[in-house]
Every structure is written in structure tokens, then in C-alpha cells.
Design a protein around this nucleic acid. Structure first.
Lengths: 201, 201
DNA sequence: ATACTTATGTACCGTTCACTAAGAAAATTG
DNA sequence: CAATTTTCTTAGTGAACGGTACATAAGTAT
């Protein structure tokens, strides 16, 4: 039994192109024609490799979140909860306005609301976002245990808050806000975390 | 010359139904079939009355923002910038989880990313959101003039911040967060505004 | 070489989309 | 009443959608 004809395209490179299309147009707004053109392949190759449109999205999300989790792991290395929030939100201001990518965040742009037959997509995106929030919450739990955050603070609420701000920044970025506007939002947002921080002696 | 046959449906009631469909499924996710069924009319009546799908969306947005602006006018009556932010964000936590409506905010759910031929929709929504932000900024400008906000504070940045948080809360609501979770975010978010407020003597 | 397995390109499904003729129905005006 | 204007229902339009059949090409195994 032979091993068959080898595929002529690099799946990861193709996935990066697909990711961009989903990022820019959303799941429903992205057509198979646009995706295949960007990926440099024909529909049958796409379906053989990724199953269907939703399978392609999930593969793209896997790739996206893998990079994101790695970045978050660096972010939570900051010494204090305040610095974690600042590093994260300032980093997001940069990333979401990086001209190398479409503006905003794939986990938001991908699809907040979807039509019949794609109801699972928004949940899929939400699940990936909450993954991020969990990383943050764990870090804030530690910060509270270390006395970095006040005893009255709620690490879960704080993580939800920072996550909400980052989502809001993503929407702003996708609708034209520039990097400076996002930085301003980040700077203000960090002050809420600072208010939850123990006094530095 | 006669006045013609009177229309059998109430345009505003029909618009409310259409608004719900857009709110729940987004602009692209909402089909004419769903819209007409919810509105209780047939496609030709829709097109005679609203022009096309995008015209229907704009009419629904007009109705939505009219109510929203009226509510914001009450919000900005709060005595201090901090209270404005609190009243707004707490109100949003309630409204965006009101079971009478779809979760989240129409100005976000309507469509953050759209496909070819609907590129203008996200801009349309963004314009309506910025209308809201402007109301807020004006109020914060006043607060700064009154000495309620610190002389070093940036009212525009603060308004952008509160607006970003409200958008983030909308996304959270639409992906299943409950009212309590949103309230927690609001409470934390207000503290950033508090940090920009002058000390109460 | 021959058989076998898998990928690729072309061309095309069936369905659903936004949107619309065409004419009957319901009102006003003379 | 007849004439006119506008809305209603029915039925369907062309186009675009996600997805696929089929034949061919490109590899491996025997």
C-alpha cells in the first residue's frame, strides 16, 4: 500500500492566510472563495484537510490561541497585578493596531453574533476568550495571596474586568481607533487595578 | 386621485421586531425570511417601507439610539463623573441582561465584522457608538471644569475608557455572562474614574 | 512496471440568499 | 358607480453560498 500523493501546500502557512480572512471578515462574512484564494488552494484541498468551514475556523483559532497563551504566559510574569494588567493592556493596544494583522482581535472579529447553522461559533470564540481570563484570574489569585492585591479584592472580578476592557479595545481597534487612543484606554483601565492593589510601603 | 390602500401593519411595531432579530443574529446572520416572519409581513411590504435590508437596519438603529440617547441624557445628570460612570455601567449591566431583550448591545451584536457588500455596517454601528461616547466626553469636560475631575485628567480618554468597558460588557453578556458578573466588572471599572476624581473634602 | 493511495484541478451540484414581477385587494376621489 | 393610488399576496428571479463528483496527477510499495 502506497503513501499517496503528498500535499503541495504547507498547512500552517495556508492556515495563517485563512486566519487573516476570518479576522478581517468574520466567520460568516468570509466566503470559501476568499479563503481558498488567500490560501492558494482549491476547495477540495480545503475540505480534505480541514473538514469544513467550521473545522478550518477551529484550526485557525487553535493556532491563534496557541500564540496568545504563550504571550500571556509572559505577561503574567510581571511582578505585580498592576504590572500584569499594564503589560497586557498596553501589549494589546500594540497588537490590535499592528498593521501586519487586521485590526482588533480574532476572538472578537471572528463572530459575536451568527446566523442559523453557525450558532456554535460565538460560543467557540467565547470559550477561547475565557481561557485567557482564567490565566489572568489565576495570576490575580496569586497576587492576592502574596498581599499584592488587597484582602478585599476579588481576583475573579478583576480578571473579568481586564478581559472586558481588552475586548472593548478590540472592538474599538476594528472600528478605526488608532494606537494612541487604545493606549489611553489602557492607561485609565490600569488605575482600577491599582485601586485594588495594596499600598506600597 | 385616491390616497391608496392604507398599510395594514404598524411600522414602529414591525421595527421593534426587526430590531430584535438583528440584535440576536447580527446584520448578516439575520435573513429576510426571519425578519419578515418576526415583523408579520411579506418581503414586498418590507422593501416598500424600508428600501432594503440595510435601510431596515438603519431604521432599527435610529429607533435604538433614540432610546439610548434619552437614557444617556438621564445618566449624565448624575452629580459627579464617578456617579455618571457608575450609573451608566450599572445600568448597562442591567439592560444587557434584561430577558426582555436579546443579551448584549445591538450596536455591538449588529455586526463587528461583515462580508463583501456590507462593509459599511460596522462603520454605521461604530458611528452610533461614538455618539454615545461624545455625550460622555462632554459630561466629563464639564466635570473637569467644575473641579470634579483632577486637572491632570483627560476627559476624552476617560469617555473612551467607559465606552470601551461598556462594549466589552456587551460582548460578555452576549456570550452568556450573567448580570452579577457584569455588575462586578462595572464596580471595578468605576474605580478608575474614581482615581481620576478630585479628593472629596 | 503495476497496483494502490492520496492530492489536485475542473466543473458543478442543491440550497439559500436578497430582492422583485404581476396582479388581486382595499382604500380615497369624482 | 368608475377611476386612481397604494398595499397586499403569490410566486419566483438571478446570484452567491457551502460543499462535492470525477477524472487526472503524483507519489509509494511490491
Amino acid at each position: 500500500m502506497g503513501m499517496g500523493r503528498p500535499r503541495e501546500f504547507d498547512a500552517e502557512v495556508a492556515l495563517d492566510q485563512a486566519m487573516e480572512v476570518f479576522w478581517r471578515h468574520g466567520y460568516e462574512g468570509a466566503t470559501i472563495a476568499q479563503l481558498t484564494e488567500a490560501m492558494g488552494i482549491n476547495p477540495p484541498s480545503l475540505y480534505a484537510c480541514f473538514g469544513n468551514k467550521e473545522g478550518l475556523l477551529k484550526a485557525a483559532l487553535d493556532r491563534y490561541t496557541k500564540l496568545r497563551v504563550a504571550w500571556m504566559n509572559e505577561v503574567v510574569c510581571a511582578p505585580t497585578a498592576r504590572d500584569v494588567a499594564e503589560r497586557m493592556l498596553m501589549g494589546i493596544a500594540e497588537k490590535q493596531t499592528d498593521p501586519a494583522n487586521p485590526p482588533g482581535c480574532l476572538l472578537v472579529q471572528g463572530g459575536i453574533a451568527c446566523g442559523t447553522g453557525s450558532e456554535s461559533v460565538p460560543f467557540e470564540l467565547a470559550a477561547r476568550r475565557s481561557q485567557n481570563e482564567d490565566q489572568l484570574r489565576d495570576r490575580f489569585v496569586r497576587a492576592k495571596a502574596e498581599g499584592d492585591l488587597k484582602p478585599t479584592s476579588d481576583p475573579a472580578a478583576l480578571a473579568r474586568y481586564v478581559s472586558a476592557v481588552s475586548v472593548g479595545m478590540g472592538v474599538m481597534a476594528s472600528s478605526g481607533s488608532d494606537r494612541e487612543a487604545l493606549r489611553q484606554v489602557a492607561i485609565v483601565a490600569v488605575q482600577a487595578v491599582e485601586a485594588q492593589s495594596a499600598d506600597r510601603t
